[in-house]
Write a protein that binds this DNA or RNA. Structure first.
Lengths: 144, 144
DNA sequence: GTAGTTGTAATCACATTAGTTACAATAAAT
DNA sequence: ATTTATTGTAACTAATGTGATTACAACTAC
């Protein structure tokens, strides 16, 4: 089981907005064409990003723009917004047997380590800003 | 989307085997009762663990035992065995548009950071041995 | 051979995902 | 005011993955 592609779709969306917002009207159709998914999927993603105040969307006329400085947006912000996982990365089996010493204490023993693993992953995402990704992207584009 | 409970079920299974293997015949029914899942789920888990040479299973007579020293088994070993995720934690959307500068380079820009996040998580799991978990468990049991 | 257990296939219900259609609401342009 | 392009959102579908469950052959000690 993996983390939904909604996350990478959202990152792609943010990067497309930041790259093109000063040149084009960045509509859901435009983004959908770059990401290669259905426009409705992008609109749903944009609604999530908007609710977290990461983007502004112009209803009617169309087009999305960043609502914050790209240097202040990390992969973790995007990951948090799109509910890739709902709180816990690791799915724990329900109702271990309280009448067994192992079943009774398995949560006490294991939970902190699962949390630590998840936190380590999330901290890596916090290290990467949208601005940094955009700068890297420009290097790749110039080398094409 | 989360990591399957097959992982915590497998950890619970290993901990139950280690805890009880010198006292009882640890059958799939026994483990299933502690974990509180169907015995077939435990048998499938045991098959995975056996394939990775983490446990021995006695067909016919019944009962599972550790095949390695508990100090040499980490959460990562168990996580690797059970295919909680099949290689990549993050599911990337398929076929970003190669005719768009963003779509063309999104993998080049993003992949390394997703890998870094996954690796950070997995490294945390490598820090925790079954022996350590068992020692912690004993402390909890003694305090009950 | 009996009893208890493993090994494994088959089927089921459920949840999640992403795709898709459809259309009302919005707002600029004319 | 009407037209046009777009957003916002509901509804439905197909595909997939998970875990539960039933069933039974194979195995091994007794």
């Amino acid at each position: 089981m993996k983390i939904t592609s909604r996350f990478t779709i959202a990152v792609h969306t943010m990067l497309a907005i930041y790259t093109f917002q000063n040149k084009y009207k960045v509509t859901s159709d435009f983004i959908a064409s770059s990401v290669n998914v259905n426009p409705v999927v992008i609109r749903r993603t944009l609604q999530n990003l908007k609710a977290a105040k990461l983007v502004d969307i112009k209803a009617g006329i169309g087009g999305a723009t960043l609502a914050k400085n790209a240097a202040d947006i990390t992969l973790y912000d995007i990951y948090s917004v799109v509910d890739c996982i709902n709180e816990n990365l690791f799915n724990f089996h329900d109702n271990p047997n309280p009448d067994c010493p192992v079943g009774k204490n398995i949560h006490s023993v294991l939970d902190k380590h699962l949390t630590a693993a998840q936190t380590a992953m999330e901290n890596e995402l916090k290290n990467v800003t949208l601005e940094y990704l955009s700068n890297q992207l420009k290097i790749y584009i110039n080398n094409n």
